[in-house]
Design a protein around this nucleic acid. Structure first.
Lengths: 214, 214
DNA sequence: ACAAAAGTGTTGAGAGTACACCCATGC
DNA sequence: GCATGGGTGTACTCTCAACACTTTTGT
């Protein structure tokens, strides 16, 4: 086809989770140059016969042991110079997981996979800092007009937990009463009985999402 | 870098305009296989040292003679099989132009550049039909929470023209009074005196956008 | 008793919706 | 004088924002 030199094509995956009361992003420690020893987003080269989303899923599984169901394309980054090895364009996907679905130990090398604060990540390889910022922006926009949380919460959860998800992502307080009204009015939650929550002295209603999937 | 075969990387550009009371999209007729003689979006291979957006601008200018200021990345399409020549991923950009900014005659071959209905384009090469649908979807979403029209309207225009832009893109009628209130409340328009409009029998207020750009 | 989280309603403001008539002018 | 598009206001509903107290129970 084109006789010109081709750029390389990669996928990078921004996986968010929420635990320890913070928005976290999953990073791996690079084992080879460039940026050896630096933290980076999981990702890698797209195989010649797989779709972009498949590539993202595969790379994520290979590098972190994480199998994720819902990935969403965010943006494509392709500035010359973003990769010192040569021209590389990266298609970025974003996914959400519930904290305890993750077993970084399943990855090839557990020590190289870890969660970090999404808002204040460590020094990152390539333009990955910018990519994360872009993904956060998208996630926030999505909160405005959709119910986000299905992938982030356990099967049964309290409204307080749900609300906290919003507060953590938006980084601003949310009115309790309005939040409950709005969410319940959506009709996507179904009551699931009461239970104790550690730290509370009162039984709390639990809920789950009506639809088993997405 | 990667010793595996690399996909080719292209950009495709969806340029919308409005005239003859329809949403139009700019297409070129392919001069060589595959899909020789079929209509397609302007676009082409990304050079090894130019940014994606630059590539989009360049290809658009080369193939249509159109120089456009604001391009927005929409999505990246990369399914294997979308290009019979071999694996190709395409980063899609979208732009808006005012009808009379366009002079297809400036292109290398005028006969091969033309405007078509965006909603009912002719049979297209590759997955370009799907790409156009995706771009329309994005444009509509953008209408919901932003004022779109700066690039589509002449410097001075009437509110009726502006409203028509919305109706044509959304494909549904818009209430005249609400539209005027909403737009004027935004404070982004500035009055520009009255003038006659052909087809009307009364002088009409004209407006322009406050900010010269963006 | 008290600390800690759960749960609950009302009010006011602004935005969206629906809707119909007079105005100025060219013909 | 009539046909054509230009221009305007009101009433209703709904959604969003702001706001504080009572309940339950473990310690």
């Amino acid at each position: 086809m084109s006789r010109y030199p081709k750029p390389s094509v990669t996928v990078d995956i921004v996986v968010f989770s929420i635990f320890d009361d913070h928005l976290k992003v999953l990073l791996i420690k690079r084992g080879r140059p460039p940026f050896e020893g630096r933290w980076a987003l999981p990702g890698g080269f797209v195989e010649i016969d797989e779709s972009l989303e498949t590539a993202a899923r595969r790379e994520l599984a290979e590098e972190t042991g994480l199998r994720i169901t819902t990935l969403e394309q965010v943006h494509t980054f392709g500035d010359p110079g973003r990769d010192p090895r040569g021209r590389t364009i990266s298609v970025v996907y974003c996914g959400l997981v519930q904290a305890d679905q993750v077993s970084p130990k399943a990855a090839s090398d557990a020590a190289t996979v870890s969660w970090f604060s999404a808002f204040r990540p460590p020094a990152l390889a390539f333009d990955h800092q910018q990519i994360i910022r872009c993904a956060i922006e998208r996630l926030r926009q999505k909160l405005e007009w959709t119910t986000v949380g299905y992938e982030l919460l356990p099967r049964r959860f309290t409204l307080a937990q749900f609300q906290r998800v919003y507060e953590i992502i938006l980084q601003k307080p949310v009115d309790k009463r309005r939040f409950r009204r709005k969410i319940l009015a959506q009709g996507e939650l179904v009551e699931g009985g009461r239970a104790r929550v550690p730290g509370s002295n009162r039984a709390t209603k639990h809920y789950s999402f009506r639809r088993p999937h997405a």
